[in-house]
């Protein structure tokens, strides 16, 4: 293994793979690739190929791990045996255990774990092909998979690495830069630039570190934009196909809007319906009379519901204040 390049940056200021020093590798994102998982994402970032599945929130076993006031996040980072040229021995290693831990901690501040006491959110990140920066790629993919699973988060998390080669700082290291560079600094941050993961390997001066942090911030913002694009694009296409020939658009928008408030109302309508149904079961001849009553019942319920919704709003407001 003596393939160390003589120069990492050529006279034109370009790197081995033709990128600028502050340019990230091209990224493609696919959402919802696994049907069994609650949320999933497949990401290609340069030559990295990562598959992430999210399950949960779900019941946590063994029970002794349950936290009575919040959900547990379990993050498993794993490299497939075939992900690099030399076969990796399958199973947990010192390295993968460490990466799992720091990646989990990168998500703990943003995921609203307090909403799901004693449950667990499982994140499985599988590296299918590795080419430097797999932990940051896995975090980027996991962030999307968590959003796809409908898990409440304060922000998406974007991650990116800065390194030093030939005495110069470069963004998003590739394999030779990672292997033979002088420093590697992976960072994960939220949209506000709050850092949730920071590791460093090698040496940087204080000045270089500050500069690296700035470069990384720019990189993460670019990645965040790509994550947003991917999330918006998931439904973009079919929405374009399905929307035409709308006559009663107004009514349907109402339906969407009513989703939250309307729920209690709809339940009560259901209740009225069900009582009708149970009548049928006991003596089917009564059904006609039941159905006549039906409308009256429904009207009553709508009245009731209006009161109920008012109450409900007060309650939710109260809970918000508590949250604040």
């Amino acid at each position: 293994m003596n393939d160390k390049p003589e120069k990492f940056i050529d006279e034109n200021g370009l790197r081995l793979d033709g990128r600028q020093i502050d340019e990230i590798r091209p990224m493609t994102i696919k959402i919802g690739v696994l049907s069994r998982a609650d949320g999933s994402c497949y990401m290609e970032w340069g030559n990295n190929k990562i598959l992430v599945a999210v399950y949960g929130p779900r019941e946590l076993h063994p029970r002794r791990l349950q936290k009575s006031d919040s959900a547990l996040i379990r993050y498993r980072y794993n490299m497939a045996a075939f992900s690099v040229e030399d076969r990796i021995r399958p199973g947990p290693s010192r390295r993968s255990t460490e990466i799992s831990k720091v990646s989990r901690e990168a998500f703990e501040p943003v995921v609203m774990t307090n909403l799901y006491p004693s449950a667990v959110i499982d994140v499985f990140a599988e590296v299918l092909q590795a080419d430097a920066g797999t932990r940051t790629a896995a975090i980027n993919a996991a962030s999307i998979a968590l959003a796809d699973a409908g898990i409440p988060m304060k922000s998406l998390v974007a991650a990116c690495a800065v390194g030093k080669v030939d005495g110069k700082l470069v963004l998003d290291l590739n394999k030779p830069e990672d292997n033979y560079g002088q420093a590697d600094l992976p960072i994960a941050m939220t949209q506000d630039g709050e850092i949730t993961l920071l590791q460093m390997d090698g040496n940087l001066t204080q000045e270089e570190f500050k500069q690296a942090l700035e470069m990384c911030k720019k990189g993460c913002l670019q990645i965040l934009e790509m994550q947003k694009e991917a999330l918006k694009g998931k439904f973009g296409e079919d929405a374009a196909i399905e929307v035409p020939e709308d006559i009663d658009e107004e009514i349907d928008i109402e339906v969407m809007v009513e989703c939250d408030i309307g729920e209690s109302e709809d339940e009560d309508l259901e209740e009225a319906d069900v009582s009708g149904e149970s009548g049928e079961d006991e003596d089917s001849e009564d059904t006609e009379a039941e159905e006549e009553d039906h409308e009256v019942i429904e009207e009553e319920f709508v009245d009731l519901v209006e009161e109920e919704t008012a109450d409900e709003e007060e309650i939710t407001e109260g809970s918000e204040i508590r949250e604040q």
């Binding site: 339906v255 309307g262 709809d266 309508l269 259901e270 319906d273």
Partner: peptide
């Protein structure tokens, strides 16, 4: 579960139509 309100519809419009 997040799509249950859509099946019920505004004021039960969808579910009564389905019935």
């Amino acid at each position: 579960p997040a799509k249950v309100p859509r099946i019920i519809g505004h004021g039960g419009s969808m579910v009564s139509m389905l019935k």
